[in-house]
């Protein structure tokens, strides 16, 4: 082996261009789908109702941004998600920790938690609607539950499965109970707690939109979609879908960046 061979391994500009070009293959199918959509919209007035032309979607984006419809609904959904996340996450982490720490709580609450969790979240909507009405509290309840479920479970699991070797380290160095909790149990459970919080972020966003679809009054992206559907304005519905997707993607990205920072010691392979 000589050095020439070694240097050849490094990517050249040409390699990078090739790699970029190969990466473009992923866009072939999405672009084809968009073209098909656009073609479908030009087949006639009836088709154009469903397959609204892409330039129409774009125009409507500008328009509804300017007239405030998008910002108002978007912020309403975001705010609702944040409150539900805060309420449900806080309660969920607390209950999970209580269950993991105190056996009586675990024994009494766990079966009920498991039973309640079997019902798909949105399946509770008719019940909540009858008990609490169709207003803001009902939406918030659904969203909080969406944050509550995964945080309870993951906090509980995280605290229950602390590595026995790490606990032994604490014992060897005579750590007090508080020190064991502070230096071993808490950081040891943190990755799992974060997993729960990340699931909660994704799940609250989805149920925020879902609850707005069902509980109509008040602004929100779900509500915007429901109204768009009722008025048969596909471009509004599509816009909402796109905004929901992008927002979900971005929040996920932010949360996982935060997790990477807080858990930078974690060995991710």
């Amino acid at each position: 082996m000589n050095t020439a061979v070694l240097t050849d391994i490094r990517p050249t500009t040409g390699d990078r261009i090739t790699k970029f070009a190969l990466g473009l293959r992923g866009f072939v199918i999405p672009v084809l789908a968009l073209v098909a959509w656009q073609l479908a919209s030009q087949q006639g007035a009836v088709q154009a109702y469903v397959f609204v032309p892409l330039d129409g979607v774009f125009k409507s984006l500008i328009e509804h941004f300017a007239d405030g419809e998008i910002p108002i609904n978007w912020l309403a959904s975001l705010g609702r998600t944040a409150s539900g996340f805060a309420i449900g996450g806080l309660l969920g982490v607390s209950l999970g920790a209580l269950m993991a720490t105190f056996r009586p709580v675990d024994v009494l609450v766990n079966p009920i938690y498991q039973a309640v969790r079997q019902v798909p979240l949105l399946g509770y909507i008719p019940l909540i609607s009858l008990w609490f009405g169709n207003g803001e509290p009902s939406k918030l309840l659904i969203i909080s539950l969406a944050a509550f479920y995964p945080t309870v479970l993951n906090t509980y699991e995280g605290l229950k499965h602390i590595d026995a070797r790490h606990v032994a380290v604490g014992r060897i160095f005579l750590a007090s109970r508080w020190q064991t909790f502070r230096h071993i149990v808490l950081p040891g459970a943190l990755p799992s707690v974060f997993t729960g919080l990340m699931q909660a972020v994704a799940f609250t966003w989805l149920s925020s939109v879902g609850s707005e679809l069902f509980f109509n009054p008040g602004p929100g992206l779900g509500n915007m979609m429901a109204n768009g559907q009722a008025a048969f304005r596909m471009e509004v519905v599509l816009l909402a879908v796109i905004i929901i997707g992008v927002t979900g993607y971005v929040t996920n990205l932010i949360v996982s960046k935060i997790a990477d920072r807080v858990l930078r010691w974690r060995n991710v392979r």
């Binding site: 070797r165 790490h166 380290v169 230096h183 950081p187 943190l190 010691w265 974690r266």
Partner: peptide, 12 residues
């Protein structure tokens, strides 16, 4: 005490 596994606390 020293084990085969270094048993370092990964977050420290």
């Amino acid at each position: 005490m020293i084990f085969q596994d270094p048993s370092l606390l990964p977050w420290m």
